[in-house]
Design a protein around this nucleic acid. Structure first.
Lengths: 336, 336
DNA sequence: AATTGTAATGCAAACGTTTGCACTGAAAAA
DNA sequence: TTTTTCAGTGCAAACGTTTGCATTACAATT
């Protein structure tokens, strides 16, 4: 593999000069630059980033941790898009992206330590799901910049994060339904163990309150994200007699069961009941009928998290911050 | 960050000795090893892989190319699992994994050249979808080991690949149905532009032939992978009068439409018609009824492709080969 | 006692860059 | 003409490892 020395020799200059040409140093004359570039092209030379990394102490690499257990809050297609977003951001910065799986059995600290000390990652993107208090401390102690994908409790010491604006998402859904003249709205799928779920419910409550429709607490229905639960709870709701005009599903798999229940009761969607679900473009458009969703831009979330990380890397004393990616309603066929 | 020199000084030995201890050289006495390890632990030292990479000319890194356009053959959840598999394999080898998006607008050669020459990737995993003849030549010329995810035409000069055993997958489906006493089987969703689709059809034909059931060519139905197409073709098939006892769907989205059509015709699944679809665990178990599938182990495919790559890296004159990952039928509720 | 063999360790060069400093030569200022 | 300035370039050290070779010290063999 051809090195800077051979370029230098072929161009009749020193290696320093070649280096400065590559890094576009202003102290090199235009004529020399032209001459050296010609040789670089001719020899098809690319600088060895490993050597560069060694001397500059910068690897031009960030790492992404993936929690492979957590298939509940970070579902597959979801996180796949996150990766794309991060990678896009990396390409813009000419950084490279290393990915590393972690699971509950592995000591995260060891993986991170390996990535940072041995592989010299300059920063880390990680899902909030693996971010314990202890890990935050460790990362801070190492002085390694990091940003979380998913909102981090404000109780936590300053950490940077990017998340979907879940609260506003539900608000938008409520407003949207309200504009269609629907006031009796149920929220189904509150899971108090999931932060994003809490936020979706928050948004539901706040929208209901702002609009001033009577809030019936029994219309916030707890259940986890499975089609079976959705089916069961929707059945109960219909059977209860006081049926809502619309239901917002706090999660995607859930909505499959909800819709099935409505159909099994011989009710029409959206004529009798409207349905709005969250995210999951893929599933939403595969259903019959295709379901109106609060669309979450997961790619953007990845993109912005990496961007935030680069800010942190370049300007190390930056104050940490949170960023919410806004959602939008995608109208399909479960609403009027 | 603490270096080998500081360890050496603290342990009262030379850096060479520390290096040999780390690499477990047999020429170091046990007592010295113990002494040095104690210091390493105490100082919490990790070797700098960048320096190591420079001197050994090995980066202990492979790269994965992801085709971000190709959301047809490599769908999201699908490729996400591939990444996991590859990463698992990397962790076992203490390699790290770099990922890079490519799309049709980008010159793949440039990306690869950057990964190999600048980033010093030791090998590359890439989706067969981006593997042109020209690219193969270029990779061979660079002498960079690579393996394709997806079967590569045998016309191509030796290239290593790993793929799902699509042909046997359909065969298994046919046998499975035949064991239930079903003989009139249709294959729906043949897409002649997709290699994996061709192979699935091949398997269909060969199984039919082996079993000796009369093969009706009109029961191999071409259409692309959308629920609308599936619906339309299934409707046509039912209306045609000579209805099959079972249908095998060549792709997942398709099956959604197929099932809907059957239901809309007031036929019962699986009593009147059985349905088997390919892959896509997620969707299959979200449907009503949950659909029996030919399950493809995509994680394993990733895992094996990386393993194959490591073989190539370690033993450079290895002959290229193809590997088929076997499928299995997962019985759900669309078959008896 | 002298020689040989060997296990254990150290020395120093090398990997391919970057960069502070020194140097050169020519133009500008004296 | 002599001195100063400065743009442009080169020298050489440095980054943190690995590794061929030399060296040491001591045991084994003569």
């Amino acid at each position: 593999m051809i090195s800077i020395k051979e370029v230098a020799k072929a161009a009749g200059v020193s290696t320093s000069t070649v280096s400065r040409v590559i890094n576009n140093s202003p102290s090199i004359s235009q004529s020399t630059k032209d001459k050296v570039w010609a040789v670089i092209k001719k020899l098809n030379y690319s600088p060895n980033n490993i050597a560069k990394a060694l001397i500059t102490n910068k690897s031009y690499t960030i790492a992404l941790l993936i929690d492979v257990d957590d298939d509940k809050s970070f579902q597959n297609p979801f996180f796949y898009e996150v990766i794309h977003g991060i990678e896009k951001s990396c390409q813009e910065k000419e950084f490279s992206l290393m990915v590393a799986n972690v699971n509950t059995k592995m000591k995260k600290q060891d993986i991170i330590s390996w990535l940072v000390k041995s592989k010299r990652a300059e920063g880390i993107v990680l899902p909030v799901s693996i971010l314990t208090r202890e890990l935050v401390k460790e990362l801070k102690d190492m002085g390694i910049p990091f940003v979380a994908v998913g909102e981090v409790d404000s109780i936590q010491d300053n950490v940077s994060w990017v998340d979907i604006d879940n609260k506003k998402g539900t608000e938008k859904a409520v407003y949207y339904l309200y504009e269609q003249g629907l006031k009796d709205i149920a929220f189904i799928g509150y899971d108090s163990t999931k932060d994003f779920s809490k936020r979706r419910v928050e948004g539901f409550k706040s929208a209901i309150e702002k609009i001033g429709i009577s809030n019936n607490d029994s219309w916030i229905i707890s259940c986890n994200n499975s089609k079976e639960q959705g089916y069961k709870e929707m059945m109960k709701l219909i059977d209860s007699g006081k049926m809502p005009q619309a239901v917002i599903c706090g999660n995607d798999s859930l909505s499959v069961g909800v819709i099935k229940a409505i159909q099994d009761k011989d009710l029409k969607i959206p004529e009798d009941i409207s349905v709005i679900s969250f995210d999951s473009r893929q599933i939403a458009s595969l259903m019959y009928p295709e379901v109106t969703t609060v669309d979450v831009d997961v790619f953007e979330m990845g993109y912005q998290s990496a961007k935030m990380l680069f800010d942190l890397i370049e300007n190390n004393n930056l104050t940490d911050q949170g960023l919410l990616i806004s959602t939008k309603i995608i109208k399909r066929n479960t609403t009027k």
